[in-house]
Design a protein around this nucleic acid. Sequence first.
RNA 1: GGGUCUGUAGCUCAGUUGGUUAGAGCGCUACAUUGACAUUGUAGAGGUCUCCAGUUCGAGUCUGGACAGACCCACCA
Length: 897
Amino acid sequence: MPEIPKTYEPQKYEDKIYALWEKSGKFNPDNLKLPKNAKSYTIVLPPPNITDKLHLGHASIIAIEDLLIRFHRMKGFRALYLPGTDHASIATQNVVEKKLLKEQGLTRHDLGREKFLKEVWKFLRVTQATILKQARKMGGSFDWSREAFTLDVERKRAVTKMFLDMHKEGLVYRGKRIVNWCPRCKSTLADDEVEYKEEIGKLYWIKYGPFVLATSRPETKLGDTAVAVYPGDKRYAKMVGKKFMIPGVLGEFEITVVADKAVDPKFGSGAIKVTPGHDFTDYAIAQRHNIAMKQIIDEDGKMMANCGKYTGMTTLEARKAIAADMEKMGLIDHVEEGYKHNLAICYRCGTTIEPIPSEQWFLAVDKKLKRLGGKSLKEKALEVAKNGKIKFHPHRFTKRYADWMSNLHDWCISRQIWFGHEFPVWYRDSEPTYAKAPAGKQQKEIYVGEKAPRGKGWTKDPDTFDTWFSSGMWSFSTLGWPACAKASAGKPGKIIKTGDLARFHPTQVLETGYEILTLWVSRMIMMSLFALNEIPFENVYLHGMVLDSLGKKMSKSKGNGIDPMDMIEKFGTDAVRLSLLIGSTPGNDMRLSEEKIASFRNFVTKLWNIYRYCNHADSKFSLVEKINKKDLKSLSDRWLVSQLQKTIEEITRNLNEYKFSMAGEALEKFIWNDFADWYLEINKIEKNSKVLGYVLDKILKLSHPFAPFVTEKIWQDSSARHSFSGGGSSVHKILMVEKWPVADKKLLDKKSQVDFAHFQQTVTKIRNIRTNYHIDPGKTIQVFAKKAENKEVIEKLARIKIDVVSKINAKGIVVAGKNIKLTLAISDLIDVEKEKARLEKEIANLKSLVTKTEALLSNKNFVKSAPKEIILVNQTKLKEYGEKLKIQQELLKNCTY
RNA sequence: GGGUCUGUAGCUCAGUUGGUUAGAGCGCUACAUUGACAUUGUAGAGGUCUCCAGUUCGAGUCUGGACAGACCCACCA
């Protein structure tokens, strides 16, 4: 066999190892050869947008999810990790539009719908392939045979079926509503797709018939139909219910005065002008008081034909012109400069949002449904979070989810975007989609169905679905819905599942960034409840954002982003995964720097060198599955193996509780400190190859979900070597499907833990003395003792030579532990006063500890109320302090040298 | 305006239901290194756990308040 290389070079092996896993077929749970009753463990990858390549957020998702998947696969679950991508309609359309404009100077309208969509598909095929390749690079153990795309044929079938079902239940309806409209994207936006930007503008105080009132948008005066005041406001009480003629730039118009609680009597003059067509609050007021709506702004963000000489101006132009004209007419009372307010902008392109009335499809979240036992989607979605059917990790997100959910309004699901799922809807003799014409010209006939209706004159609805509508179905549209679901004939609401849907739904974990808790997670819950009457996932794990080393958001424009693929190229996938898993806590943002990744690359190298050492130590080295007590020869053997059992237990428990960082830290500590720094050094003196093989076997398994590549590489290399030396079969098993270690209680050894701790203290103390007195590290110190356990090991590790004598005459520093008392013959190097001072300090410290513990133990209240274990711990402590104190006092007494 | 989170070593953060002399990594100081590993080892320094009050035998941990910072939601004419 060739020599094992000095360093592990991930670039050399990772692709080959991934190919080995893929070829084994074990990514597909159907090939795992499990007993029939094996439990399923499913995670569906939150589909990355195909707008761009993977970023660190995705890398973080895959690191965490693949950790969970590999852990459960090894524990014997039917583990399914289902990959896919998201078409991200509006985002993708914008990216392609931008690209098109830059490269060919064309807008999508220049190309036309069909050609434009061809461009989009051309684009997405490339990015999609990149993303999927990168997901492999991350080492994700995805079942590629089940790969899905939110806009492929199966998902299209699902979206259509969902809409038809919802329509049948009366859950979706078409209505004219005020919507957030982006004049650039030419589309509606959901409330949570709107962002706010602080802006300093003007507040116009205008003379308004009998009122003076404040507005930041005088141009909307053309659409005013009412004035609202706070109910019971004495200033205006007499006017409520009356109509007034108001002078305006286009002549007089009529308004009605209404009283509504939405008005803040303390703001401005306490009276507001109501523009139902272009303001959300005003729309709500108009609804409550049955007041007409007048639309004056169109979907280009321009003034409409009913605006006289202002027609065709943008709202900003109209604002200036109208303000100037009002000034001339003496309608402006005064103008307040520097007025601070929030401007609504589009989250995709930053354009100012215009609220405009528009004909859209809505999903009724408050409609009571028979299939949900008379509850609405909202009520049901709240219930499953509150009763703990869906658990949030960390728990605090339950509240955020519930708050958001209970404030949810009907969801506008149609978008005026070309790229996306089409509505199975046709219109006849009508102006389709958003109303270009003034109100009044309504749709005459609407047909909802899978296929186009018969007869002439039908046109298909040109709108597409909100992208969250299809991604909201992701947990089950990927698992064979609707083909694998049938409504039960007997029980309403009961769904009979077959195939993948029966085996893998509900999924176990949804893991994603907390920033899309509301956008996505909530929608998935509602969709699954509606379609299957069950939750989409049992647990929601939310991770934080990955920030740069200065705590700033990573962004392309700032150029502070770290590309995970560059890091993989440089440090290997395992290092990248480890750096994303360790040192972060659920739901909290984490900082990441190249240095951090580099330090985990060192850890991977350490692991490799441990393996290398094992083979150096024993040319016939092999991994050992099981070990018996009688194989443990020395104190260090017993200690290490006992420590290992504790570590297995700790890692398993932490992983079960979603504490990935703590699990990883326990693993790192055991491997680096306990195994490499202590045990291997001792093993050089007291060789025990079987213990090495046993512990490494467990380390590889425990590390595999965190660092799959290096562990698999060592596993493969080791079994190749073993079979080469004639020890085993030449057919290599893969580590990925090995069994997860279980702590063997029989190998727990408390006594050796305690003894080894004392041993470590003794060695450390001697090393400490060497450093303090600047003793040449190469020099062996002569030491005398009456008896010495583990003599040889202590001698080698501390570089001393122990002579066991019946009477010690030598002078020097005395190091005393529980079972050992060593006299270091270095009196010529010692500063006696310094040594005395050191001892006195330690004695004082111990004395105060003894006093403190005694006081605690004699406190009646403590003894009465503290648990037994705590009392016992303190009693033991007191005894230990006492013993130590006695030893130190004795040393001080003899400190003559 | 409503809400959530954070404040622990120079820096980045852990710290599980309150219970050992509060931990890690990086950095720093000193030293070592032909040896599995310079991608290393050994030892050390460094903390009134932001502040105040309370509950408790006992508070970094629980409660109330103050101060500082981050974010989310609602948006007001």
